[in-house]
Structure formats: structure tokens, C-alpha cells
Design a protein around this nucleic acid. Structure first.
Lengths: 236, 236
DNA sequence: CGGGCGGTTGAGAAGATTCAAAGATGGTGG
DNA sequence: CCACCATCTTTGAATCTTCTCAACCGCCCG
């Protein structure tokens, strides 16, 4: 029933490999071991410095604090997990706090990303791709977990517009979009029917129109403000 | 208002850099350009082969199809996005389909991961860490987007138990857990009050107990079946 | 002993889903 | 060119889920 407990191997292997990884980070990227007491904010959302952590022991949490006071916890990292492998181009829209006593290896995200990605073009390209993807997922988790249907839909379509604009495919406030309401609903974690009603509301509120094949923001500023949208998590 | 449209630069840079990336993938990892018509399932959830894609043009979707018929769309990749950079140890619990006509560079995930991570221990360690993290997020998105409170809580605590067991820190059906109900609620996208009621239900249903500091499954098999839990997405 | 935090409960309101059905829309074959 | 079909969209009504507000309990710690 519990495969891992059948053999002592996996139990003993973990601390050894973890220590090896920690030592490699110290040697190659200038990391240092650190300790944090419970309930400490280790990395604050929006902070300037980019740091990366490998957890030795204890429990932490990576969370996104919304302006309305809600909080979405995105990850609950434990021993062996890596937190914050993002270059400084990728933003820091998430905070990292300890839950219990926490021991980590900690260092500059930049040194880390160099050691990881300096070898070739592919590595660099992919590294920032993964970082951005991870960013999007954190934001979407906050969307679905903490925001109501209208805000959620608005927020997502603003994000999509910005992504398209970034690659030069469209204007962020007026773009081609081949998604059906059913696909959009499954993306947002809503019923197609409820999404439809929600779209009517945002349309009648003068925020945006979503028709098969086309998204048009009627009042972009109002939509940004309504959804508390800050697209900086798309950078990098 | 729309920074990117102020200069033609970003509009023109994207296709050039993208082609460069595609050519690098062809040269270094044996990728090939491919075309898919709309509404095609390109990579089916649970399929044996591990493939990686760089999107040239068109719209795709990465989705997780649940056994109850619900579907959570995890990503909507567009030009320049990378899909499926997971080693074959990391599972394939997600499908990849085209939405519109889709042109991609496509190849073996294994060749890709070798080119990315063969250089040093850190790269390899981090690569699988990111892949696993990405896996967890996809699953949690499905949790919050598609499953009710009771299933969601059960599913998450089963996952947490397996993560702890994998690092040799606990039994998956009976483990120390320092989270308050409030923290768990913010993780699951629920109110602490509603989570509390939900925990009472699962307790009275004989599935598991969650007390401050301790999680204990009363009937592990029943919980697995209730939550339709399949932990294979944690591998790798 | 008192305060604070976490947990528990109740009642009413808001949000989202389900089921059912009808109106648009675009593409295909006759 | 039109009729028809499938798919997408829209609407209504009833129901269920989840949230909000308010209050109380219990325990640990100072």
C-alpha cells in the first residue's frame, strides 16, 4: 500500500542527495545556509532583490497577497523543494514565508540562473520560458481561487491581450481570439453558461466585449482597475 | 498606453528570435517542424512518448481531463511558448491540443532535456524540480477549478502525504502537518469557515481527520477513491 | 486570570451550477 | 442560392454550493 515505506532506501537517500545539492549550490553559486523562525516573511512580494532557496528542513509557503486582502497560497514547499528560481527579469509577485522553523540554502537568483543557463542558447531560452509559465500559473491560481467570475474573466483577457501584444500579434485592447466560450470557461474554472452571463455583465458595464473570434476592450483603464490588473508578472 | 505598439522593434524581433530558437532545436535536439489542423489532440494524457513543442504560430491548449468528464485548461500557449518540457520520468497527466491551425517545432523531450541539463548537477536537479513543481500546479488548478470542496481537500492532503513519504519524512496516511485551517483554506481557495465544515464532513464520512499538527487517514483507500487520486504526477 | 488565536456553529445572502429550451451563426450539400 | 445541420450563444428557473456576518468555545501562554 505504501511503496516508499517498504524499503529504507528512499528514506535514507533523500538527506544525502539534498546535502549534495546544497553543497553544489554553495560551491557553484555562492549560496549560504540560513535559518528562519516560524511565521517569518522571507521574501516580500514586490521586493527588489531576487533570491533563490533550496529548503533543507521545515515548512514554508509561497503566497500571493491580493489588494482586496485575500491570499492565495501557491505552493507549500518542504525539504528538497526549490523556491524562486526566477531571473530578476521575471517579477516577484509572490511572497515566501516560513510556516515552521525553516532551514534553507539561500543565494542570489542571478548567480543561480547563470550557473544553470549559461551553457547554451537553448538553456537560456527555456529557463526564462519556464519562469514565465510558472508566473502565469501562479496568477491563474489566484484568479480561480480568490476572484469572482467577472474579475476573473476580465483579468484573464487582459493578460491574454498583453501576451499577444508582447509578441507583436495584436493590440492588447483589441485582439483576435479564436476561443469559444466553452474553452474560456474551462480555462477559468467556470460553467460555460455562467461565463456567458458574466460576459453579458461586463459588456453591459462597458468593460469589454467577447465575441467568437474577437475581444475588444471598451474602456481599457476601467477594466484594468476593475480587475486590479498589473501585468508586470508577464515580463522576462 | 500601449508601450509595445510605440515601436516596431518588439513586433519585428519576435519572429526572428523565434526562428533562431527553432533552428537551434533542430540542430541540437533533432526537432522537426510540423503542422496540425484545428481541434487535434496532439499529445494525449497518459500517452507513452514524451514530446516537447515550441509553438511557431496558432493557438493551442494544454488541458487536464478529469474522470468525471470535467476539463481544466491549464495553459493557452501561443507563438513562442514551449509546451511539455518534462523528462519522461515526469508524468503526462495533461493533454495538448490545437485550437486553430498550429505550426510547431517538435521533438523528443528526452533529447531536449539532455541538451538542457547535461552540463552539471545543478541543472539536472533544478530541471526535474521545475518539472515537478509545474506538475503540482497543474493538478492544483484542476482541483480549484473543477472539484468541490470535499474532494479538493481530500485530494490535496493525499498529495501532501505522498510528497512527505517520498522524502522519507512520514507515512502518507498519517503525518505531522503544522498548517492551520486558515492556511489550508487559502491554499485550496476556500474560506476557513467553509473548510472547517468540509473537514467535519470528511471526518464524519470516515475518510480522514485534520487536526492542528496532524493528518490521519481513517480509510486511505476510500479517500483515494473519493478524490479520484492518482499520485503518479508526483514522480520524477 | 485574561487575552488571543484557532476552531466550531448558525442563519441568511450571494455566487455558481444544473436542466431545459430557444435564438444565432457559419458551413455544407443539394 | 437556398435549405439544413451542427455548433455556439443566450435566456429562464430551480437548486446547490460557498461566502459573509456574528457569535461562542477551548486552549495555550503570559
Amino acid at each position: 500500500v505504501h511503496p516508499a515505506s517498504d524499503s529504507g532506501l528512499s528514506i535514507n537517500r533523500h538527506p544525502y542527495e539534498l546535502r549534495k545539492a546544497g553543497e553544489a549550490l554553495i560551491a557553484l553559486c555562492g549560496f549560504t545556509p540560513k535559518y528562519y523562525p516560524p511565521e517569518t516573511v522571507i521574501l516580500r512580494q514586490g521586493e527588489g532583490e531576487a533570491r533563490t532557496f533550496l529548503i533543507e528542513s521545515g515548512w514554508g509557503m509561497v503566497h500571493r497577497d491580493l489588494s482586496n486582502g485575500a491570499r492565495q497560497i501557491v505552493e507549500l514547499p518542504i525539504s528538497g523543494d526549490v523556491v524562486g528560481h526566477f531571473t530578476n527579469r521575471a517579477l516577484r509577485h509572490e511572497s515566501f514565508s516560513s510556516v515552521t522553523d525553516l532551514r534553507v540554502w539561500e543565494g542570489s537568483a542571478h548567480a543561480f540562473s547563470v550557473a544553470l543557463a549559461d551553457t547554451n542558447f537553448v538553456g537560456d531560452f527555456i529557463y526564462s520560458s519556464v519562469a514565465r509559465q510558472r508566473s502565469l500559473l501562479g496568477e491563474r491560481l489566484a484568479d480561480i481561487g480568490q476572484r469572482g467570475a467577472a474579475v476573473r474573466a476580465t483579468h484573464f483577457l487582459l493578460e491574454l491581450g498583453l501576451r499577444l501584444e508582447r509578441i507583436g500579434a495584436a493590440r492588447s485592447d483589441n485582439y483576435y481570439c479564436p476561443l469559444t466560450q466553452s474553452v474560456l470557461a474551462d480555462t477559468l474554472g467556470l460553467t460555460a453558461i455562467h461565463l456567458n452571463r458574466t460576459l453579458r455583465e461586463t459588456r453591459e458595464a462597458g468593460l469589454f466585449q467577447f465575441r467568437r473570434g474577437h475581444v475588444e476592450f471598451l474602456d481599457y483603464e476601467a477594466a484594468v482597475s476593475f480587475a486590479q490588473f498589473d501585468g508586470s508578472y508577464l515580463q522576462g
